[in-house]
Design a protein around this nucleic acid. Structure first.
Ligand SMILES: NC(=O)c1ccc[n+]([C@@H]2O[C@H](COP(=O)([O-])OP(=O)(O)OC[C@H]3O[C@@H](n4cnc5c(N)ncnc54)[C@H](O)[C@@H]3O)[C@@H](O)[C@H]2O)c1
Ligand SMILES: NC(=O)c1ccc[n+]([C@@H]2O[C@H](COP(=O)([O-])OP(=O)(O)OC[C@H]3O[C@@H](n4cnc5c(N)ncnc54)[C@H](O)[C@@H]3O)[C@@H](O)[C@H]2O)c1
Lengths: 218, 218
DNA sequence: AATATATAAAGAAAAATATCTTTATATAAA
DNA sequence: TTTATATAAAGATATTTTTCTTTATATATT
């Protein structure tokens, strides 16, 4: 009953919109911290991010942090609290499946570690790619996935196979013990309910972009 | 007055959620068409996509299409109507700025044409990349952007420079006449109001994935 | 120490979105 | 042809999310 989240296990669900805004606050706060500011107020954040300050306060409150009237929030405390809330400060260990164009880009995408994802190995079926490395991550044969996932206790998988191989690859991932899949393909995966799937489908963003653009032209 | 959108200019705003769902319907419908089915009902779609059929009907209605009771929608007509509504059937010509790892992946990402985006050229400042081609798209020097955008009348730009160069590159794009930017960097761009910016920020999706995953573990 | 004030917190209201209910209708079956 | 039925369309309700309003409080100022 004390502070919203932490105490209560059946804590009322936090809206995905709020969760999606938190990383944007984080990036902003890192710039603020770099500037040397020790505290930051919601109105200030709102002005800089062109967002409603009360919404910012509401969003931040889900992490359990408290601000001080007339001062705002302690910047470093706020950063740590959000990172902790989102799991960005952990090393959430993951495998990448399908080391093609996009896969290789992601393997070299070191910013991802700042978002709590650490890729330990990549897997592919293309023999010519096996044992190559990108961004210090080695590509192994897909058939080794099960054994390694099991041995290292990996439960997060990033799926970047071609779309027409996504379903079968995902099923193999689940069989290997992967519990959460970040699906970069444009395919809707049909998997057991207990598997967590997060789709990053560019086409939704393209749709918004083109709609906004074409409407503005009309 | 005939069909909702097209006629009326002040057509009541369509929610982004609806627009983001339409491409998913499209992909599903393409599979249905491939199977040879001529018509599809909202309840059928709802069952397959695990979505509320009435929401599907509402979503589809924004395109102006009409279904027939006891039959459903004509599949090919529905596909064409959605594609047309989203602009996926046009060749929306675009430039890509920053032909690095992610940029090259996108240049070879031919599925993008199915979403109405046609990349005509890429631009970079790295001399070693100039005149190389990926996915049949040539990389030109960034300083040629303005002239070419002007000559070819390009107003859509895909931004894939490093994050710390994103703001300056975006400003140059706007100066070159780019009106809509698909921003793949993790940076919040500060641009004139009239510029349409669509952010594809992976970190929002990562946040949801990790939250869902870590909550499920707890 | 007293007072004023900026700001967070909490709660209320409004807006947006999703779901449910009813109605109308096209088609299939009798 | 008539009737039954599945389904789309339209409208109503419920839920969720955002924005607005009020209240409480920590700090700065006098
Ligand atoms: N390229 C992009 O910019 C981009 C952007 C958005 C989404 N995507 C999506 O990402 C996915 C990959 O795209 P890409 O351009 O990197 O394709 P790609 O063909 O370059 O890479 C796919 C890789 O997966 C491997 N693979 C195939 N079957 C496999 C299996 N069963 N198990 C493991 N690995 C397997 C292939 O050998 C290849 O190396 C596609 O679904 C695409 O829609 C790509
Ligand atoms: N790599 C990924 O998988 C990935 C995923 C998501 C987001 N991103 C984002 O995409 C962006 C690019 O990532 P990347 O991994 O491709 O980086 P990269 O360094 O491989 O590529 C960046 C390219 O931009 C060019 N460039 C630099 N300044 C430029 C300028 N002013 N004008 C034109 N071109 C310029 C560089 O020469 C380079 O070729 C980053 O902001 C990153 O955060 C990358």
């Amino acid at each position: 009953m004390k502070n919203s989240e932490s105490q209560n296990n059946k804590a009322q669900r936090v809206s995905p919109q709020t969760i999606k805004r938190l990383p944007a606050y984080l990036m902003y706060l890192q710039k603020v911290a770099q500037k040397g500011d020790l505290s930051i107020s919601a109105p200030r954040m709102g002005a800089d991010l062109e967002a409603d300050p009360t919404q910012i306060v509401k969003d931040l409150s889900v992490t359990g942090i408290k601000g001080k009237p007339r001062v705002g929030y302690n910047v470093t405390e706020l950063i740590h609290t959000i990172e902790n809330y989102l799991g960005f400060n952990k090393n959430n260990e993951a495998f990448l499946i399908g080391a093609g164009k996009l896969g290789q880009a992601i393997l070299s995408y070191h910013e991802l570690q700042g978002f709590g994802i650490r890729i330990l190995a990549a897997f592919d079926i293309d023999e010519s790619k096996i044992n190559q490395s990108y961004g210090n991550v080695k590509i192994l044969h897909f058939k080794k996935l099960g054994e390694l996932a099991n041995r290292l206790g990996i439960s997060i998988g990033i799926l970047t196979t071609p779309s027409d191989k996504a379903q079968e690859a995902a099923e193999a991932m689940v069989k290997s013990g992967i519990k959460a899949i970040w699906n970069m393909t444009s395919v809707r995966l049909e998997l057991p309910k207990h598997v967590i799937v997060q789709n990053t489908s560019m086409y939704a963003d393209v749709a918004i972009l083109l709609k906004d653009y074409n409407d503005s032209e009309a």
